[in-house]
């Protein structure tokens, strides 16, 4: 590499400047809006400083949304990793190379779908009377009705299942590829010691893949924050507030119900602070 070249400067600086402007302007402006009392219905506004944030802590719907968001995050991340590791190991164990390629192709399809499409596909499938996914239940019970999306107890899991359908299958492909990159010697050594198949994976291969698996989980945690499209199409936060996550509540406060843009922005700012701090800390730990 030549020591002195203008290339790094001309290539990096313009891009970084644009990225900084595009990201910092809205971020800072979100904070400014959160300190005001803007509403959609009027152009007049003034600074109210922290009163939006104070109000939030007495807003039971906000506290519910925090709780729903945490549940969503835990359910989708854990289920995705379980499905991914389970199917990944299965493919590694029982599928021939040709079959593996076919499965890999099939398992990537759901994640490529727009979330809106995936949400529709499953909204139809979960329809209590005409849905294909509820058909086995109707068949077995002789026509009883099961409506997973309109029961508070099951709605969150029904929506989460779509997220896991998209990401769990995709991550299974990655887990398989990771297993394929491992050197065969430790696995053979374990086999010579008469270890069972599941023991080989539980004590040898998966511990060897600890670092990439944690990175994978990290990616899923970030992607799980983007639940809005699924929930918006499938339940709109309902029934009641059973699936109302923070972004859904912020959106409905800001644009559907009351037009309180500043209130919504205060919520978004809290979300932003929480996620940026959490993920920065996690990332530094993953890297270390």
């Amino acid at each position: 590499m030549p020591r002195r070249s203008s290339l790094p400067v001309t290539f990096v600086v313009p891009t970084l400047v644009i990225l900084l402007i595009l990201s910092m302007v809205p971020t800072l402006y979100a904070i400014v809006i959160a300190l005001q009392n803007r509403e959609l219905s009027s152009t007049a506004y003034s600074y109210v400083w922290f009163s939006n944030f104070v109000d939030l802590f007495f807003d039971r719907r906000f506290l519910n949304a925090v709780w729903v968001s945490v549940k969503w995050e835990v359910v989708t991340v854990v289920a995705t990793m379980a499905v991914a590791i389970g199917l990944g190991v299965l493919m590694f164990e029982v599928a021939s190379p040709r079959l593996r390629n076919i499965y890999c192709l099939l398992f990537i399809i759901p994640v490529l779908l727009p979330r809106v499409s995936a949400a529709f596909v499953w909204k139809f499938a979960y329809h209590p009377l005409y849905g294909i996914a509820t058909y086995p239940y109707r068949l077995l019970t002789g026509g009883l009705i099961f409506d997973p999306l309109s029961k508070p107890a099951t709605a969150l899991f029904a929506v989460a299942s779509v997220d896991v359908w998209q990401w769990g299958l995709f991550f299974a492909v990655i887990v398989l590829k990771l297993l394929e990159t491992l050197p065969p010697q430790p696995i053979e050594a374990a086999r010579l010691d008469h270890a069972r198949r599941w023991q080989i994976h539980a004590y040898v291969t998966l511990p060897m893949l600890k670092a990439p698996l944690i990175s994978l989980m990290f990616v899923k945690m970030i992607e799980s924050l983007r639940s809005f499209d699924l929930i918006y199409v499938m339940t709109r936060g309902g029934p009641g507030v059973a699936t109302e996550t923070l972004d859904m509540y912020a959106f409905s406060q800001g644009f559907i119900e009351s037009g309180k843009v500043s209130y919504a922005s205060a919520m978004a700012v809290l979300m932003m602070i929480a996620t940026v701090i959490t993920f920065t800390m996690l990332w530094k730990r993953v890297q270390a």
């Binding site: 803007r38 843009v261 940026v276 990332w283």
Partner: peptide, 24 residues
Amino acid sequence: DIQFFVLSLRFLPPVAVAIPLMVI
């Protein structure tokens, strides 16, 4: 740091970006 900055853009919740951008 540049790599981390680029990645950290992904941490931003879309609502947090979309509300101010709408106003802008």
